[in-house]
Nucleic acid binder design. Structure first.
Lengths: 252, 252
DNA sequence: TAAATTTTATTTGTCTGACATTTAAAGGTC
DNA sequence: GACCTTTAAATGTCAGACAAATAAAATTTA
């Protein structure tokens, strides 16, 4: 492991990359202790500050954890699904907001992925997950629910559906797609009529999941996608018309 | 923005979290310049080293980029799909390897997600993407191809299929699922017979995509999943039997 | 001896100050 | 006006110091 002082990249970035590659490549295994900062500084022939900056880069990606004290140090961290979820959600949220991804694009991706889970969920969901779905549907039917709370309940419903597939890899992937949509969904005002329609579709989906009918659940999700997109389209069109009453709306 | 010196968390972690929240929350916008390290140190009442460690944490997540020189500094970075891809692949790969996710679980997730893309890809794929798929199928049919090269071509084929959906959010999500499988796939030895079968299925899928037949493409992926899983199962069983000839295999 | 306490050594976390390097803008020269 | 030099500002790196946490070793005490 040698670093290149002539490289354009920072020394701390080079060191972080080398250690990261060693982790991904399996040379460093979970719970293994890295040499102390002082030893690493010696090995790489850099100062301790530089080593520390490299380690902080790795810590930010949950690749290592550090512990103070006599037997402390930096240890290779087992990346848990929990940690990966939150990273995934942050990244997905930023991707959507920073790249001006349209509502339609995000929505299409979300429902396409969710349909991938539906047949598995219909087959494997626990009674508890089904109960969660039912409970969220009931909550969504309450008339005095705020739009924000309605969206949050929507996310909870869909998470239960996804988790029903009993595949942590799917749950991880879907976490980003479902949760990152929430800021976009929060831009929508849900009328009583549209809520009624959504609740009805949610109920149909729950029925299909309960009956173990993956096809019906998939169809329900497709209907829900159509409903959501047309709802969003009408709302965005109305807002555009309000802002520029005389011009053709530019769309979303 | 105040930091809590009594918190158990490191100062640099606290500062990084605060800035990150400001980015995710939209208070800091793309290409905006953060105060200089010295100014941040003043504001947060910490040393410049601590600020730097916080900034390196953010840089590791591609949330900021830094530039040296008179007009330099730390700028909020537009998170590109490219950057997100590679982060996603790293995270997915580590999740699978560190949590001992079974081949079946990963495989199921991958094909479920890919089937979500198939109908869209059948509808929208460009001629170029179809040509890529055909080219990879041809490559896979070459008899003297190494197992590793066969797997790499497999990934390229499926990426073209996924990108055919023309939805960057889907491509981003699938990048993790498809590429992270590669180390697992590389554990498999592909016999001439099994390669023949896979190439045939790939060819059928390409046909379906060319014909715009999403249903057939989906079915082809299902067949491919069955084939891949049974192939893996037989290979893992054979290896287990070789190691412990007298005991029941523990499976993968 | 056994338990409780103190000491010690190690390691990360933070601070200070310095210098190197990069970069763009300001100033000067032809 | 074009070209060169200087300057200032910012990040990158280094060195050394101390603080704080922590576990093991050493010591004291019952």
């Amino acid at each position: 492991m040698k670093i290149d002082p002539n490289s354009s990249a920072d020394l701390s970035a080079q060191i972080a990359t080398m250690i990261k590659d060693a982790i991904v490549g399996g040379e460093l295994i979970v719970d293994q202790r890295l040499p102390s900062e002082a030893e690493l500084a010696d090995q790489f022939q850099v100062s301790r500050s530089t080593v520390r900056e490299a380690l902080k880069r790795l810590a930010a990606q949950s690749l290592i954890r550090t512990q103070r004290g006599a037997t402390g140090g930096a240890f290779i961290n087992r990346l848990s699904f929990e940690e990966a979820y939150s990273q995934q959600i942050t990244t997905s949220t930023l991707l959507l907001s920073m790249n001006a991804v349209s509502f339609d694009t995000a929505c299409e991706a979300r429902y396409a992925l969710e349909r991938a889970c539906a047949p598995l969920s219909a087959e494997r969901r626990t009674a508890d997950q089904l109960a969660t779905m039912r409970a969220e549907v009931s909550r969504q039917a309450q008339p005095n629910l705020s739009d924000e709370a309605f969206c949050a309940s929507d996310v909870a419903f869909h998470r239960a559906l996804v988790d029903g597939a009993a595949n942590p890899v799917l749950s991880y992937q879907l976490a980003g797609a479902v949760e990152a949509m929430q800021p976009l969904m929060n831009m929508i005002t849900f009328s009583a009529r549209s809520r009624e329609k959504i609740v009805s579709l949610h109920s149909q989906i729950a029925d299909a999941i309960e009956a173990g009918d993956g096809g019906a659940a998939t169809q329900g999700l497709t209907d829900l996608e159509v409903e959501t997109r047309s709802l969003a389209a009408s709302i965005f069109a109305a807002r555009a018309a309000q802002k520029q009453p005389n011009q053709a709306s530019s769309g979303q």
